[in-house]
Design a protein around this nucleic acid. Structure first.
Length: 433
DNA sequence: TCTGGGGTCCTAGGACCC
DNA sequence: TCTGGGGTCCTAGGACCC
């Protein structure tokens, strides 16, 4: 059995803790550069404000409806999240923090009235942290998610579901018929894992409610859609396919990307921004104790403008996997240099670290690293091994020939000059045929 | 004038191998 | 006219999540 504890309108609720006068008022929190709405109070939702709604289209509601718009304060939200999560953890033996405002709790072995227990935890979070939450309980994560949806809707829109489900909805204490009734009155698009695209396809095929989806044959779903949707159907049928992930794996990608407040055309400010993104990404990388072997940098114009469009990205292999800020910045700038073209009003840029590996593994390989990156090297080694196996040991040997000085096609000259790099790479062993 | 910033997983197709 | 088959790895793109 799983519970999903989810803070209501989380960013808005955080702001309201410190500004109680915002209670009962339509409030939204805006993204970077105050671009669009990323959190909405119930009152703002009632005004028709959508997730991702551009602020410039909403501005008129300030005067017309008393809408209050706040710039995001992510440091605050992260701190509030930590407090909320530690209280939510009291619900059961293990917890998966799924996002800044949601966590799954494994309720295995928890005895007694689950609903009463969830209500108590909800009260505690409200009293001690100030964040209102809803809790959904079900035999699978997908059903717990759905129960949470019911709990929220029943609270926010009286009449949408039976009022006893408001705030905490526990499917485990309901009859089969009662559960089916809830599924039958919920649109299929509300299911975790069914997005806009697949939702529309399902509706077009006559699968309109969650109950319709739950009654499909998993094998048919797999054939018609994917293994992902098949798993969702099984979960809706009560078969748990998605376990609790209480020790999340280190990230496989680390990104830092931003839209600019104003469009950028010149190289210098762009390079400054990219350096900053690369530094932030490198910091995140070190925090999880990893090294990255590739750095992706991208720039693009705004797809919402009539301007000439330009969108380029480049993946720059690191000389060796690293978490070193200067090295990562240099790689990002090398990439930027080769994709940059003057004459475009660029709206966004970013740096994404790829091919991320544990720092320990990288250390072992450090001394052996050749100029071409880890994968090329290991492919080279594999090739050598198979030749030597076939034709006899020593047919190909590691020699001491000098690697050519020709720059690589993405222009690594800049990276070579970076402090922290030495010329030793030019003397690395290469295979001589 | 003004439209977020992170992530994950799956699949199809091509390259390559034996 | 006939032109293997099975496997792996990699990549790009799509779909989803909050």
């Amino acid at each position: 059995m799983f519970a999903l504890v989810d803070g209501n309108n989380f960013y808005v609720s955080c702001e309201r803790v410190f500004r109680p006068t915002l209670q009962g008022v339509p409030v939204i929190v805006l993204s970077n550069n105050d671009g669009c709405a990323i959190a909405r109070s119930n009152e703002a939702k009632a005004l028709g404000v959508k997730m991702g709604h551009p602020w410039h289209q909403l501005r008129h509601l300030e005067e017309e409806a008393g809408l209050v718009a706040l710039s995001a304060n992510f440091a605050l939200y992260g701190d509030m999240s930590d407090r909320m999560m530690s209280l939510a953890a009291g619900l059961g033996p293990s917890q998966e923090v799924y996002s800044i405002d949601e966590s799954f709790i494994d309720l295995t072995g928890v005895r007694g009235d689950l609903k009463a227990r969830a209500l108590a935890v909800r009260e505690r979070i409200l009293r001690w942290v100030g964040i209102p939450c809803c809790v959904g309980i079900g035999p699978t994560k997908t059903l717990a998610k759905l129960a949470n949806h019911v709990a929220k809707q029943a609270e926010r829109k009286p009449g949408s579901y039976p009022p006893e489900h408001a705030r905490v909805c526990d499917l485990s204490c309901l009859s089969r018929g009662a559960v089916d009734a809830l599924l039958g009155s919920t649109e299929v698009g509300a299911v975790w894992g069914v997005g806009r695209r697949i939702g529309a396809q399902l509706v077009a095929g006559g699968v309109c409610t969650v109950l319709d989806l739950a009654r499909l044959d998993p094998a048919t779903v797999k054939r018609g859609w994917s293994v992902v949707l098949e798993r969702t159907v099984r979960e809706l049928q009560g078969q748990s396919c998605i376990g609790l992930d209480d020790a999340p794996a280190p990230k496989q990608q680390i990104a830092c990307t931003r839209s600019f407040g104003r469009t950028v055309e010149a190289y210098t400010p762009l390079a400054e921004a990219v350096s900053e993104f690369a530094s932030r990404a490198a910091k995140k990388l070190r925090e999880q104790g990893s090294h990255a072997a590739q750095v992706l940098v991208f720039i693009r114009t705004s797809p919402f403008r009539q301007d000439p469009q330009y969108s380029r990205s480049m993946i720059v292999p690191m000389r060796r996997p690293s978490d070193d800020t200067p090295a990562i910045v240099a790689a990002a700038l090398a990439g930027l240099k080769s994709i940059y073209q003057p004459g475009y009003r660029l709206a966004k840029a970013g740096v994404i670290l790829l091919d991320i590996q544990p720092a320990s593994r990288v250390q072992c390989e450090f001394d052996f690293e050749a100029t071409s990156g880890q994968r090329d090297r290991s492919r080279l080694m594999q090739a050598m091994d198979s030749v030597n196996t076939r034709w006899g040991q020593g047919t190909i040997r590691v020699g001491s020939g000098r690697v050519g000085d020709a720059p690589r096609d993405w222009g690594m000259k800049q990276e070579r000059k970076t402090p922290g790099y030495t010329t030793e790479w030019d003397d690395m062993p290469v295979a001589k045929a």
